[in-house]
Write a protein that binds this DNA or RNA. Structure first.
Lengths: 152, 152
DNA sequence: ATAACTCGCTTGCTAATTGCAAGTGACTTT
DNA sequence: AAAGTCACTTGCAATTAGCAAGCGAGTTAT
């Protein structure tokens, strides 16, 4: 690594912004694929590698970065000291909203004639999950034109 | 460009997946920053460039890609034939859920002591917007553990 | 106990991508 | 007609990605 990170996105931006800050942690095409696997129940290095076809050096560096950023946690496997169990932290679990938003958009706009590649089932209500971004206060669906912005 | 896209993420994945498909279009740290600007009301090349500090060749290629993918639309400015007005298509507007999910996560986990860098105001109900991913059917908040997956 | 194997990396190398600086051509203003 | 603006494109140096191979610690098989 260089002594100064050249890719410090947020530092280049004149206004502080949660999109930019989040992308510092997440903006890599492998990161969300690793998270997808984690949300689908995977916990081990070799499962990530074989499910994704990712190069080992890239996987190592992404896992390290996700652990350093508190999105994943490393635990020793009790039955085998070589194995490392990666699991989502609370901070990582909270990325489910972003992952589900990506799934929802992809399902709507990038599906072929077979429809969505994966069906999500909402166990809470027993129906197919179609995700929707809502306002915590009023519960209504949020659209871009309904939101205004105030700089701090 | 090479004659064959080396970065065709989805083609490498054994299972079709909306996360992978979406990331083919979106996985670049500039893409969401450009979209952020678009959601904040920007429409012109030079505004994107100066607000983001992005290199002109990268901005061109990202705008082209977003237009090719139907996320942004190019229109001629009627008052000046040189100017090109970029605006979000319906497909692009639908990415608001992902953008808001990123903002929500960043606000919660990456804020400093000053709190969120930008306050979102939900005009529909008049309160501060705190975004939440919900089930369209039952309206309840969605958490990772409440969802199961069925391959098609 | 020793050889083979598995796991989670690391290193070397090449190819692709990034970003800066400078330039280009179409159009507009002075 | 000259200067300026707009949306790029090109050349080049530096960074990053990805493949293949190797490595050390721990485990299983003989």
């Amino acid at each position: 690594m260089t002594e100064k990170a050249a890719n410090d996105v947020a530092s280049r931006l004149d206004l502080p912004c949660s999109v930019a800050r989040s992308l510092e942690v997440l903006s890599d095409r492998w990161v969300f694929l690793i998270l997808r696997e984690a949300f689908f129940g995977e916990h081990y290095y070799d499962r990530f590698r074989s499910n994704l076809g990712i190069a080992t050096n890239i996987l190592s560096s992404r896992l390290k970065s996700l652990v350093d950023n508190g999105v994943l946690a490393k635990q020793a496997d009790e039955s085998d000291a070589r194995r490392i169990r990666y699991s989502l932290t609370e901070k990582g679990l909270d990325l489910y909203s972003v992952t589900v938003a990506l799934i929802g958009w992809g399902d709507k706009w990038l599906s072929d004639e077979d429809g969505p590649p994966l069906k999500l089932h909402h166990k809470t209500c027993g129906h197919r999950l179609r995700p929707q971004m809502c306002c915590k206060h009023c519960g209504k669906a949020v659209r871009a034109r309904d939101v205004s912005y105030a700089r701090k």
